[in-house]
Design a protein around this nucleic acid. Structure first.
Length: 157
DNA sequence: GCCAACGTTGGC
DNA sequence: GCCAACGTTGGC
């Protein structure tokens, strides 16, 4: 089992959107980066826990805990010309990008802001905190995961 | 809105 | 295969 952090821009898709979704589940679609694609395709497994992170917003930070309910499969939005994630280079036989399904497990009693994470010595080396980090599917080591859990209080749904 | 960092594209 | 140009991400 591995642990992950998925980024989303709340103006596109937020914790609140996930709370409102049927079964509090969603397809994590629209990932268009090869490294992230490879994680989704090869490494993210059913049952893996995932922190939900809000980026490009007033207060970037971790806001929720999800779990993977379906492992990697070709992202159908690649073939949908109406979708903002449409990929003209994909074909039904060869879809370039992958997705997984996730379900919200808990929200945090309070968001865990990026600026707090930066102050934690125990989180040094966390890929999320690296300068210029742009990866939206980030693996979290067990050690980092435990440290992060110690900084949070979960509110079960 | 700015801009640093990084990924992708495409000409050669 | 190199690398300049360009586009995107994302914190601030």
């Amino acid at each position: 089992m591995a642990q992950w952090l998925f980024k989303t821009e709340p103006s596109e898709f937020s914790l609140e959107d996930l709370l409102a979704a049927p079964g509090r589940m969603t397809r994590w679609e629209g990932i268009r980066n090869y490294q992230a694609r490879n994680y989704l395709r090869d490494a993210v497994r059913i049952g893996d826990p995932v922190f939900l992170y809000h980026s490009s917003c007033r207060e970037p930070g971790i806001v929720g805990l999800m779990e993977v309910v379906r492992a990697g499969y070709p992202d159908p939005t690649c073939l949908d010309p109406e979708s903002p994630y449409y990929d003209p280079r994909s074909t039904p036989e060869r879809i370039r990008w992958y997705t997984v399904d996730v379900r919200l497990i808990a929200r945090l009693s309070a968001p865990l802001p990026l600026r707090t994470l930066r102050q934690e010595r125990a989180l040094r080396g966390f890929q999320l905190l690296r300068r210029g980090n742009r990866l939206s599917i980030i693996p979290v080591t067990q050690t980092l995961w435990q440290h992060l859990m110690e900084l949070t209080t979960l509110l079960p749904l």
